[in-house]
Computed example of a mutant assay.
Amino acid sequence: MDDRVAGGAAQRAVHLPRTPAQALFRRLVLINGLVFTIGTLVLAFSPATISAPIVLAEVPVLLIGLAVMLGANALLLRRSLAPLDALTALMQRVDLLRTGDRLSDGGNSDLTHLIGTFNSMLDRLEAERSASSGHALAAQEGERRRIARELHDEIGQSLTVVLLGLKRVVDRAPDDLREELHGVQEIVRASLDEVRQVARRLRPGVLEDLGLHSALNALAADVSQMSGVKVLRSVQPDLPPLGSDVELVLYRIAQESLTNIARHAHAEHAEVSLQAEDGRLVLRIADDGQGGARQDGAGIRGMRERALLIGARLSVDSPPGVGTCVRLDIPDPANRSATS
């Protein structure tokens, strides 16, 4: 019984795959052994001879042979270890919000397992990041809807009641107080309008009621009215059918982009374009402002997270003094949906 157990363990040990470290060690040993074996054979069968003690004329031959052996060894080792440099560079630049950056194995069988394991790790991290972002954004949208509903139903209605009460007071007030009450009336009316605008930004009711085309037109009109930036709109009328998740992502990215333009770009003109191109849907928001956005702020990173939810790719081009262009490419938009 003990012999069979020992034999089975030995058989399993024989078939265990080599670890990446063992495979790399084996390759280095083989390379060095091959180089020194070739050098020994050349020395043994060549007409060159080595005297004892060494003659001065034989020193250049030995130095040349040593240089050739070291050069061949360095070249073979460099080719074998080259994927490690590429792997290190990928580790330094990897960003889970910029997906698809992977390293090919390059035919190096000893490092294929290491490279494949790292690529699989990136796949898992990107999937987990996308899922967690989806849950967080879904909770955020739910909270936005709740706050918008409370603003509209409670604060908005309370301000409306106050406004109506002020109107009755103004009608019965003496002339010397009427002008002051009119000023209070205008303040309350402005506050009511602002509450309604905040509620619309938090919960785009026009998107749910009238669709993406009308929602983008209303968004552009609101930004133009509030900031003075002239926003041109170019939305293709016969867009393919889109899911509610895709429409919400498109609207939120356009909203964030236009908000950034109004606050930071110092632009005079902006353009919102939504077109179907070669089987994909392209949203483009551009301005003629100062540009020069070098790092992704919280707003741009939030847009990248939303883009990942529907398998889209977001790019931001912002050369100094030329303006900024935000582009969202959605492949096969009809079959995209966000992670819920």
Rank of each mutant, 00 (worst) to 15 (best):
A138C: 03
L34F: 05
L166K: 09
T88K: 13
R263M: 11
P241I: 15
A220E: 06
L164N: 06
T117E: 11
R144S: 00
L28F: 12
A276N: 02
L84S: 01
A190K: 12
R189L: 05
H213G: 03
A265P: 02
G106H: 08
R304M: 07
A220G: 10
D222R: 09
P20I: 07
V282F: 10
I253D: 06
D175V: 01
G65A: 06
R201A: 08
A307C: 09
E208Q: 12
R196F: 08
G183Y: 08
I50V: 15
V235H: 07
F36V: 15
A276F: 12
Q225R: 06
N108H: 02
Q290I: 08
G323H: 05
S340C: 04
E256W: 07
R203K: 13
A148H: 00
P240N: 15
A267L: 07
E143G: 03
P331Y: 03
K167P: 04
V229D: 08
M226V: 11
L28H: 02
T19P: 11
R280P: 00
D317S: 15
N217M: 05
L81P: 13
D85V: 09
T112C: 00
L103N: 04
I187A: 13
A57Y: 07
P83D: 10
G134Y: 03
T339K: 05
R102K: 08
G183I: 00
F118V: 14
T339H: 00
T160N: 12
L114K: 02
R98W: 08
L242I: 15
N32G: 15
V249L: 05
R294H: 13
D222T: 05
D176E: 12
D317Y: 08
Q157G: 10
M226R: 13
A218Q: 12
R294S: 12
G165K: 14
Q140G: 01
S120N: 14
R196W: 04
S80C: 04
A9T: 02
Q92K: 13
V29A: 08
H213L: 04
L28A: 12
V206D: 01
E58K: 09
A262K: 00
L76C: 04
L34W: 00
F25T: 07
L87Y: 10
D85K: 11
H266Y: 04
E256R: 09
A89K: 14
A57P: 06
G291L: 09
D153T: 13
Q255N: 09
I54P: 15
T19V: 00
G39S: 03
L84P: 10
H113I: 04
V59P: 10
G228V: 12
G211L: 07
A312P: 03
V162W: 00
T339D: 10
V162N: 00
G292K: 07
G7V: 10
E186H: 04
T37R: 05
G292E: 06
G107L: 02
H135A: 11
D175W: 11
L314P: 11
D95I: 04
H264N: 12
F25S: 00
M1I: 00
H135G: 00
T37H: 05
R18L: 11
E128G: 14
L250R: 01
I31R: 05
S133H: 03
R327W: 00
I330N: 10
A148T: 02
L43R: 11
G299V: 09
L308R: 06
G279E: 12
E271I: 01
L232C: 03
R196L: 12
F118H: 11
A57Q: 05
G100E: 05
Q225L: 05
E179V: 12
Q22M: 06
G211W: 08
